[in-house]
Design a protein around this nucleic acid. Structure first.
Lengths: 339, 339
DNA sequence: TTGAAAGCGCTAACAT
DNA sequence: ATGTTAGCGCTTTCAA
């Protein structure tokens, strides 16, 4: 491995000149010298040592995505929402000229500390983080953005969507189709606030139609293998039986559809289903899934734009919650017995 | 940020002693001194600077997963196979006491060089890498393992499955169900060798049944939005029309099922479908997907075990190809008009 | 069991 | 436009 010193000697210049060439410092080096140094670099295959650079400059030009995941065999990334988000972040980070790395761990605070020890320049945090938010922010002087977070602290920078509006859109659509007894299913334990807000929005829409106890059937369901089966069992046992269900994610909605099919309950004739996210899969299944759409890639781009802006000291693009929309496909029908 | 020097002074010892405590060097420091130093570390919240450690020790204790992806908006990780693989690698790396990072890029060789400049200790490479293999291996003195790679070079260390056997299992199952005209659909451009070997295995099984031109209908199909539609159009236009199709992945199989449904072709009565991988989703859809199963997490564990073994200089666990199995569910029926 | 000296490869700050 | 000096924070090597 060649070092900057060897390159400097071979080119007959000082190490600083080589450094200036590497870092493309315009106007600090004459064109002829640049050429000579670059020739030596190409010939030797020299690559600057990043740990030395980071140590000396106190900056790594790395932006890291930190994902929280729960213990157990479940893979966080198996969730298409997360996969798409990660992909969009990676692209935006690379396009901005930074190096992208991702770290996934149960203990986000500890991992943030590890990344900090690597002098990462910015951090994007995905996953259910609540109490840890303050520890995370306090533990670093670098820009941090949280994704889909419902922290108490209004100062915390985040990107996300208006989950309550999403739930409301779904509820209004079901009400319009004549549904009154509407159920909700989601992983309440897995996220902090997101699922709750979707339920709240659903209830507000149903309540506006004059329903006394809106969405009284609420099912807490994980992503495990048998979970969809339990959820559907609970759904069908509810009294009175709901005619529609809003799932907190498309994947869950598809799982429910499969179980309903096993119970000979037709979707949408006997039971309407709405998903959340609009992942690509939802257009593939049959009947195609009616769902609340969020622009996941836009969320990733916003997060990166904000972090990069703060690193560079530029104008900082705003963060906040975007508005989801409803995508009508084939899983909502008029409620049975609706007038 | 506290430094080792400050900790040393506060504890009244030399920097080397603090270093020995940090690195848990047994027997180099007395128990009393360890205790004192650890108290100071806890009090100051000292975290060793990793770039300085890497620079000085020439090792980062990082194992990196390098993913190749193609240009365009498509997200590599959206593939459940890749997501599960990444998850299992991350878990195994962390369990082995290393830090995990993931980098995804179009130019794997360039990114490998970047990671090398960070002194990563080991590398796992996922994705369609062919010509780059030699450059990658030549460019580093660290252990590298390739995943699902069909390199010419037999010396290249890899983990994967016997894709040809997988195709053969599917073919034999279809033959047993009376199918003779069998189609194959897969993204030939996206991988190097994997899809081809699955097709080869399918053909060998069909040929064994005495079929003259086994699997003559071969459809090259990507993962884009309209791709499944084109594939099904090609499938239904083929003359003679196939009675069964093997898809190179479960996600593709599900996409085909949706399109077949739109054409009022029933699965499995009119068309049998087999997938590949057995991702969780395949058990959720209806009819549940018959598929060739591979143990993705085992593949990840093998890759990590090999890299870690080589880093430590321990006995190196063997690499190689595991055997897939057939999971029979509900998408294969007896061929129409079969005797 | 502990410490002192030297240096990993690079860059910031200041010369010239 | 180029060079010199002095570290960044840690570990290695060798001594005590």
């Amino acid at each position: 491995m060649a070092t900057i010193r060897e390159v400097a000697e071979a080119a007959g210049v000082s190490r600083m000149t080589v450094s200036n060439v590497i870092n493309g410092r315009q106007g600090k080096v004459s064109a002829r010298t640049v050429e000579r140094v670059e020739a030596v670099i190409a010939a030797t295959g020299y690559v600057p040592d990043e740990s030395a650079r980071a140590l000396s400059s106190r900056s790594s030009r790395i932006i890291a995505l930190l994902m929280h995941h729960r213990p157990g065999p479940e893979v966080h990334l198996a969730n298409p929402h997360d996969a798409i988000f990660v992909g969009s972040v990676e692209r935006a980070v690379t396009a901005a000229g930074f190096t992208f790395i991702m770290a996934s761990a149960e203990d986000v605070v500890a991992t943030a500390r590890t990344l900090g020890a690597w002098r990462v320049d910015g951090l994007i945090v995905l996953g259910s983080v609540a109490d840890e938010v303050n520890d995370l922010v306090a533990g670093t002087d670098r820009p941090v953005v949280f994704v889909d977070n419902y922290s108490q602290d209004p100062e915390v920078l985040l990107v996300g969507i208006d989950d309550e509006l999403g739930g409301h859109l779904a509820g209004a659509h079901l009400i319009t189709a004549g549904h009154r007894e509407v159920a909700f299913a989601g992983p309440f334990g897995a996220t902090v606030g997101v699922v709750e807000h979707r339920l709240r929005g659903l209830r507000s829409a149903v309540a506006q139609a004059g329903v006394e106890e809106p969405a009284r059937c609420v099912i807490d369901v994980g992503n495990g293998p048998g979970d969809a089966a339990h959820a559907v069992a609970a759904l069908l046992a509810a009294e009175p039986r709901p005619t529609a269900v809003l799932a907190a994610s498309d994947v869950l909605a598809i799982g429910l559809m499969g179980q309903l099919s096993d119970h000979a309950i037709r979707v949408p004739e006997d039971m309407s289903v709405i998903g959340f996210d609009d992942v690509p899969l939802s257009a593939l299944v049959r009947p195609a899934l009616t769902t609340v759409r969020q622009d996941i890639a836009a969320k990733g781009n916003s997060a990166v734009a904000n972090v990069v802006g703060r690193i560079r000291g530029d104008a900082v693009p705003p963060t906040g919650r975007a508005d989801p929309t409803l995508v009508v496909r084939g899983t909502v029908a008029r409620a049975p017995f609706a007038d």
